[in-house]
Nucleic acid binder design. Sequence first.
DNA 1: CATGAATGAGAGTTCATTCAT
DNA 2: TATGAATGAACTCTCATTCAT
Lengths: 186, 186, 186, 186
Amino acid sequence: MTTEERVREAAVRLFAERGFHGTGIRDLAQAAGLSSATLYHYMGTKEDLLVEIMRTSLTELIGKAEQITGDETDRLVSLVKMHVRAHAEKPRETAVVDGEMRALTGERREEIVALRDRYERFWQDAIDDGVKARKLTVADPSVARLALLEMCSGVSRWYSPDGPVNLSDLTIQYGAMALGMLGAAR
Amino acid sequence: MTTEERVREAAVRLFAERGFHGTGIRDLAQAAGLSSATLYHYMGTKEDLLVEIMRTSLTELIGKAEQITGDETDRLVSLVKMHVRAHAEKPRETAVVDGEMRALTGERREEIVALRDRYERFWQDAIDDGVKARKLTVADPSVARLALLEMCSGVSRWYSPDGPVNLSDLTIQYGAMALGMLGAAR
Amino acid sequence: MTTEERVREAAVRLFAERGFHGTGIRDLAQAAGLSSATLYHYMGTKEDLLVEIMRTSLTELIGKAEQITGDETDRLVSLVKMHVRAHAEKPRETAVVDGEMRALTGERREEIVALRDRYERFWQDAIDDGVKARKLTVADPSVARLALLEMCSGVSRWYSPDGPVNLSDLTIQYGAMALGMLGAAR
Amino acid sequence: MTTEERVREAAVRLFAERGFHGTGIRDLAQAAGLSSATLYHYMGTKEDLLVEIMRTSLTELIGKAEQITGDETDRLVSLVKMHVRAHAEKPRETAVVDGEMRALTGERREEIVALRDRYERFWQDAIDDGVKARKLTVADPSVARLALLEMCSGVSRWYSPDGPVNLSDLTIQYGAMALGMLGAAR
DNA sequence: CATGAATGAGAGTTCATTCAT
DNA sequence: TATGAATGAACTCTCATTCAT
C-alpha cells in the first residue's frame, strides 16, 4: 500500500468517525504514521483530501448506476442492491459523502453537489419510469426518492460485516422493502 | 423570548448547519446577539449545550411515543407519523440529535445513547409485535427497524415547510410507505 | 500609554528593524508584553497593522505638505525641511513606509500606493513650478524629484537624535543641498 | 549559463522583489527551474546565497572605485557616475545590497558591513578632499556623504532601462546634481 | 447582568534543511 | 547530478474558556 493510500485511508476513517471538523491534521498524520509536515507531501489541503474522497466515491457510484439496465422495477431493485452493497462494503467513504458535504465551500461544494445530483437522477428516473409503467404506486415520486435514498444510505451508519447479517441477504431484503414501500404490483 | 432560549435557538441552528465542531463559541455568541463572555452566563460548556439540546429533543420524542396506543399496525403508523412530523417541524433539533452524537464524550454520551435506545425500543416493539401478530412480514426485524428509522429521520435533512409538500400529507405518505416496506397485510 | 499604542509601537520598531516578513507574531507579542493570542485583541491581522502604520504616517505627511505655502523655492525648501524633520523624528515609521510597501497585497497596496503618489505630487509640483518660474534648473524634473526624495528619505536610515548632528541644522543643510542640486538661482 | 548562475540570478531577482525573508526556498527553486533539494547542490544555506550576492556586488563597486583617479571634483563626479550606472544596470543586485543587510547575522554581517564601509570611504575621501581644496562647500561632510549616497543608490529603486531616460544622460544629470548639492565652485 | 481582557493550547500550513537513493 | 521523502520548528491565527471589573 502506498503512502498516498495510507493517508487516504486514515482520512476516510477519521472523517467518518469524528467528522471533518472534528479531525485535526495532527490526528490524521498520526493515523497515517507520518509527521504533520510530511503529510503535506501527499496531499493538498485538508479540504482537498475531503473533496477527493467524495469525488472518488460518488464517481464510482455513478459508474455502477450507469451499468444498470432492465425493466423499470428491475432497475430500481438493482439500484437499491448496488447502493446498499456499496454502503455496507465502504461504510466510511459513503458516510463521509453523505455527512460532510456541508464542510465544503465554494466551487468544490458545487462540484460535489453536482455529482450527487447526477447520481440521484438515476433513482428519480427509475421511480418515475416505474410509476409511468404502472408498476409502482407512490403518492409523490420525489418524496419517495428521498425516503428511499435515506433508508438505503443509512446502511453505512450501522452495518457491520462482522455482525449477524449476511450482505447478500441484506441487499435482497432492502430490495424487497423498496418494492414494498413503493407499492410495487405483486 | 428569554435570553436562554435565544442562545439555545442559535445553537440549534448553527449546530445543525455547520455541525458541533464547525461552530465556534464566537459564532454562537454573535448569532445570539451576545458577547462570547456573556454567553457563559446562560450556558455551561459548549458540550453542555449540545447535551441539553439532545436530551430535550429525545425526551420529547419518548414522551410522545409513550402516549401511542392501539393495535400493532396502528401503533407503528402512529410512531411513523409522529416521528416524521417531529422531524419536519423541528428539523434542526432532530438533525442535531441524529448527527452530532459522535461529538459527545464519556458519560454524557452514554446518557444520550441510552435515551436514543429507549426511544428506538418503541419501534422495535411495534415491529416485533406486528410480526408476531402476522400483520407484518419482514425478513429481519432489526434490519427493518433500522431501515425504517433512517427513512423517517431523513425527513429533517430535506423537508421544508415552505416547499410544495403538505405536512399532514407527508405523514400519511410515510405511514403508507412504512406499511408497504414491512409487508403489511392489505 | 494604551495597550493599542504599545502594540503599534512594538510593531513599528520591529518592522523597521527586521522588516515585515522578518518579524514574527510572537516577536511582536513579546515586544508588546502580551501573549500572541492577546495580541489579536488589539489588532486585526499582521498586515492590517502594517497598513495602519503606513496610512497614519503618510496621512500625516500629506497633512503637513498641504499647509506649506510660499513662492516656488520656499515651498520646496519647506517640503524638504518638513520631510527631513519627520524622517529624523520618526525614523522607524518612515522607514517602514519607505521599505515595506512590497509586503502589502491587493487593495491594501493600492490604497497605500495612492497615498504615496498623492504625497509625491506636492514635490513634483514644487519642482515643476520652480522650473517654470526659472528659479530652478534641472535636466529632468521627474528624475530630480526622485533623486531629491531618495536623498531626503534616506535620513531615516541613519539619523540618530543622540548623534552629533542637530536636527534644525540638519534640515537647513538639506534645504541648502536641495537648492544646490536643483540649480537654484543664487 | 550555468546552473549556479541561474540560481544566483533567481535569488537576486526574488530577494530584490520580495526581500530575503519574503522569499522561500521553494520559490527560489521554482524560479531556477530546480527542485528545492537540488538547489542545495548549488548553494549553501539561503543566507550564504545572500552573502555571496552582496559580496560580489560590493567587491565590484570597490574595484571600480579603486580605478578612479583625477582631481577632487573629477573623482567625485566619476564616483557618482559609476555608482549610478551600476545601480541602473544592476538594480536588483544593488537593491539587495542596500536593503537586505539587516537579514544577515553574526560574522557574515560584519564582513559585509566592512565591505560597505570600505566602499563608502572612497566617497568620504573625495568629499573631504574637495572641501580641503576649497572646491566643495558643505556644512557637514559626513552628512553630505550620506545624503549623496542615498540619492545615488535610490536609482536602483526606480530606474528602468525601458523607460524614457537614457542611462548616459542620467549619469551626467546625477553628476551635475551632486556638484550642485555639494556647493561646487562654478 | 454584562463584557473587555486575557491565555494556553491547538488549528492548518509552511519553513529551511537533510538524506537515502 | 538530481530528487522524493522526511522532519522539527516555526508560521499566522483561532479555539474554548475564565475572570476581574
